[in-house]
Amino acid sequence: MAHRKGVSTTLDTNGRWWFGMKPKHQRLVLALVAFVALIGAGFIAAAALKEEASYFYTPATMAKAKIEPGKAVRLGGMVQKGSIVRGADGVSITFIVQDRDATQKVAYRGITPDLFVEGSGVVADGRLRPDGVFVADSLLAKHDENYVPKELADIDMNTAEHTKDTLSK
């Protein structure tokens, strides 16, 4: 008898388990929740992509856009070869971001991502200083699709030559 009691509770999950709501109404509510979640996800994605587009600059578009100093924008491009200069304090760093037509000097304080090397793709959030240097609050580095063991890498450890073609497009 004891387990029969257990049976009825397992079966009741398809009966009235929600504030005495009828199964039909439950289904309706759940269907609505599912669709609202779907549409919400779509809106989030759309808003995120839109925001991305309006604040995103490459060195070339940044040079043309005449952005006022202090306005929060995003800069994307490639880290120029030989341009990374690390400060004596160990956390300051300056480097040059380039695309095909222009370059932009960037200053950053903080730990750089592992994939941040010369020649790699980078996205920096920050603002222009009146002297024309872009001060980054955060840095994003891109990975390419290659996975290579350290000891097999025949190229310089500090470069990511092969990311060039994906970014210069």
């Binding site: 979640a37 996800a41 779509g42 989030i44 994605a45 992509l49 592992d114 994003l140």
Partner: peptide, 24 residues
Amino acid sequence: TWGTWWVWDGRLTSMLVLFFLYLG
């Protein structure tokens, strides 16, 4: 590796949408 927990790029966003679809 990238320097962020999350970005709203196409791959990450569509994967998150997949998770929400599962919940639905």
